[in-house]
Simulated scan of single mutants.
Amino acid sequence: MTTTELAASAAAVRRRRRLAPYGFLAPAMVLFALFLALPIGYALYLSLRTVKVSGLGLGKGARTEIWAGFTNYTAALTDPEFIASVVRVTLYGLLLVPTMLGLALLFALLLDSRRTCGKGVSKIAIFLPYAVPAVIASLLWGFLYLPGVSPFYYVFEKLGWDVPDILSAQWVVFAIANIGLWGGVGFNMLVIYTSLKSIPSELYEAARLDGASEIGIALRIKIPIAMPSLILTFLFSMVATLQVFAEPMTLRPLTNTISSTWSPLMKVYRDAFTRDDIYSASATSVVIAVATFVLSFGFLLLVQNRAFAQESRS
């Protein structure tokens, strides 16, 4: 081979090596485009459209899709049902997230303590509810909430206790939050516990030599070092709260206190599949997605110095 041919061959090899990573990424990029990017783009397109009805709306050409601009967004943001659903989900999050993360942190600290017995069984017992699908968990708790079939209400009645209906309008948000709490504590506990197990044992030994108690070690060593995991679990919990759907949707047939627009995603479902208004549903979906992104990104900006301090020092 001539020098020119050798140079061309080497250039071709280098070109193939540069393109090889993109070949491995191609399947993921195609799937991302087909099942995430395109649906998002289509939802954005639909949110800017609406249907113009002519006459009675019957016959060919009676319903025409036209450009609507930001009309659907204005209607979504000023809809009293949407605003009420946001208020309910906010109350739900205020009840659920602090309680869930507080219990997860407490259980993680207890499991990480050297004085705790039966750690293996305890970890499985705490984590097991997370493995139960949300729909099944909601059905299980739903029947436990019903006074006519719940064994708890039977025991309360025999004891002469006057217990309110947990599915009443006053208490239903607590009922839904309890299902999320039951299923979410185990996952968050496991994340925090894994972070605690990565702390060098020498720190604990040095603290004990200095006379620190187990509570002092937890407050001054374990919790500060596990703070990035706490921030991560808070972010996941906040996003899950904004997207609550399965629990109220499953409990809805059991009570008339949960409306079809109890949460924002339930309103999207009603508009799209009950009222057949995919344009309004798309606009509401985009609003929820943007709100989730803004809250998540804003929270990360607020705590980035705390969350990524260790990475910055390394």
Rank of each mutant, 00 (worst) to 15 (best):
T4I: 12
F308R: 04
V163M: 15
S213H: 00
P21L: 04
Y130L: 06
W262Y: 15
L101P: 05
L302A: 11
A291C: 11
V89D: 06
D165G: 05
V303L: 04
G59I: 04
K123F: 14
S113M: 00
F35W: 04
S138E: 07
D162H: 13
R252G: 02
E202S: 14
T194D: 11
S47P: 00
A218D: 06
T90W: 11
E65Q: 11
S138W: 03
P224V: 01
I278L: 07
F35Q: 04
S237R: 13
D277L: 12
T233N: 09
L203Y: 10
G59C: 03
F107S: 07
R88I: 12
V30G: 13
A175G: 12
L48N: 10
G23N: 01
A104G: 09
S285T: 11
A309H: 09
A137H: 05
A218Q: 11
T274F: 15
D277E: 08
A62D: 04
L209C: 03
T74N: 10
E247D: 14
A240F: 12
W141K: 12
F245G: 08
P151S: 11
L111S: 09
T2V: 02
D271T: 13
I124H: 08
I166M: 15
F127M: 05
Q243A: 10
V268F: 12
F156L: 14
A207P: 07
F308H: 06
P80T: 05
Y145M: 08
M238Q: 08
L300V: 13
T78V: 08
E247I: 15
V191M: 06
Y154T: 13
L38A: 09
A131N: 02
T284Y: 11
S314T: 15
V290Y: 13
L196T: 03
Y22T: 10
L209N: 02
F297W: 14
E157A: 14
L203V: 03
I166F: 12
D210P: 01
I179S: 09
